[in-house]
């Protein structure tokens, strides 16, 4: 290549790059949420309706519950959709969020190897099953991160009167996401706590894992302690000029409305033969007997 060719290539590249990096226009709502709502495909299913109705774009940042709340604390998200009741409450009490609104719920289940060394198959209460796992010192894979699932797992251990940690040898704290943790449990023959949606979505890849506690569907789940409610929280705009409180409120009204709740109720039936989330807004409940 001679000099002018090199210069031409460089100029073209620079021009192309600059042209394509132009800033986007229009209103943007930033939603920080957990990986479970995004990775299941739920948000991609329902959000286009909101975007079309209000002529805005919703930017979804799917991270762990801990990180989602941290984004809210720093004013880097306008609205938050997570599942970790105690952390949500603290978030609102500390003034970072305006209020909590119930949106929907799904449930957790315990899965494990078909050999079931701790004999928990058929046990109805998760705490009882965990106690058996501990007694048998059977391997248990824990998320070990800042997720809502991990928070629930620790609460269940506490209900069982136990506080296992990595010193126990059989308790394996991974610090990984749900899919990676399930994959690990599958390979290592370990038990783990998972939300039903992620387990169903991944089931084809998890040949050595079986559902142990929680029943075949959410309505068959006998343990109330395994219910997994999601809340939506508008971020407090006070102190953070950039937070779009009005738009966030519109989004919340839309999310809790009957039409959207109905969409949530049918999402996943095509693919899994049962819904992944159950609507739970006040508006929705008021229409139920």
């Amino acid at each position: 290549m001679n000099k002018s060719q090199v210069r031409g290539v460089l100029l073209c590249t620079v021009g192309l790059l600059l042209a394509s990096c132009a800033a986007p226009e229009g209103q943007v709502l930033r939603l920080a949420t957990t990986t479970s709502t995004y990775d299941s495909g739920l948000l991609n299913d329902i959000l286009p309706a909101f975007e079309a109705e209000y002529g805005v774009r919703v930017d979804v940042v799917a991270v762990g519950t801990g990180q989602a709340l941290a984004l809210g604390r720093r004013g880097d998200a306008d609205v938050i959709l997570v599942h970790a009741a105690s952390k949500e409450q603290a978030f609102v009490e500390e003034g970072y969020g305006l209020a909590r609104f119930p949106v929907m719920f799904n449930d957790f289940i315990l899965v494990g190897p078909p050999e079931d060394p701790a004999k928990i198959g058929g046990v109805e209460q998760a705490a009882e099953a965990l106690a058996r796992i501990a007694a048998a010192a059977a391997p248990f894979a824990s998320r070990g991160d800042d997720s809502g699932t991990y928070a629930r797992e620790r609460a269940l251990w506490q209900a069982a009167g136990l506080q296992p940690d990595s010193e126990a040898g059989w308790y394996l704290s991974l610090g990984q996401g749900m899919a990676a943790t399930l994959q690990f449990a599958d390979e290592a023959g370990a038990y783990t706590l998972t939300d039903r949606g992620t387990f169903m979505a991944q089931r084809a890849q998890l040949e050595h894992l079986e559902l142990m506690v929680g029943g075949g569907s959410i309505s068959e789940n006998a343990d109330r302690a395994l219910m997994n409610p999601y809340s939506v929280i508008p971020v407090n705009p006070a102190g953070n000029g950039g937070v779009q409180a009005d738009l966030a409120q519109k989004f919340i009204d839309w999310l809790l409305s009957l039409d959207t709740q109905k969409r949530i109720a049918v999402f996943g039936i095509d693919q899994f033969g049962q819904p992944l989330f159950f609507p739970d807004s006040e508006r929705w409940r008021s229409t139920r007997p």
């Binding site: 990986t35 990775d39 799917a62 991944q202 890849q205």
Partner: peptide, 9 residues
């Protein structure tokens, strides 16, 4: 990373 997380290996 996203597709791995979702299990679409």
């Amino acid at each position: 990373v996203l597709e791995t997380r979702r299990g679409f290996f």
